[in-house]
């Protein structure tokens, strides 16, 4: 067993882990932060995206020990202490950017990384950035709309048939 220390959502944490323990397993099983999901476990789907030192990473495809002394932010670190959703989360709610919700933590974390680098992305840029995040409800349109809205851009109202 190895000792691992890192900061998660601003709080210092530590634990004893095996070398093969994945970061997502440390977050979910050792820290109880089950908001980060494991979808495919093969780095395809992006449900496990968290930020490490300010960059989006797939926490199912790195070991906990590789996050030694790093600053990790998960979906639990997005809303305010009193539960008030942040801009991106609120936009997902307002624009129905989630259906079953399984991919949502990864979508929100990827969106946050995108908007930090590119505060006003085009629709095409959003779609390209989300290449590594799969929504099996196929709810992509509303996810894109939510991210456009979160970036303060105009979102055309839904057409009513």
């Amino acid at each position: 067993m190895n000792k691992v220390e890192m900061t998660v959502n601003g709080k210092p944490v530590s634990g004893e882990v095996e070398g093969r323990q994945l970061l997502v397993e440390f977050l979910r099983e050792d820290l109880g932060l089950t908001g980060t999901h494991v979808g495919c476990d093969t780095s395809q789907c992006g449900a496990c995206v968290v930020h490490m030192d300010g960059k989006a990473v797939k926490s199912c495809t790195m070991f906990a020990l590789e996050a030694m002394n790093a600053d990790v932010i998960t979906i639990e670190g997005q809303a305010a202490e009193d539960g008030t959703l942040n801009t991106i989360q609120q936009a997902f709610q307002d624009h129905h950017g989630l259906q079953c919700g399984y991919c949502t933590p990864g979508m929100v974390m990827s969106a946050a990384a995108l908007l930090r680098d590119n505060p006003k992305p085009s629709e095409a840029e959003i779609r390209q950035y989300l290449e590594g995040n799969l929504c099996r409800c196929t709810g992509y349109h509303n996810i894109i709309r939510a991210i456009l809205a979160a970036s303060g851009q105009e979102v055309a109202p839904m057409e009513v048939e």
Partner: peptide
Amino acid sequence: IGDPAVRNR
């Protein structure tokens, strides 16, 4: 290469 999260690692 890959996707943004893969490119970060």
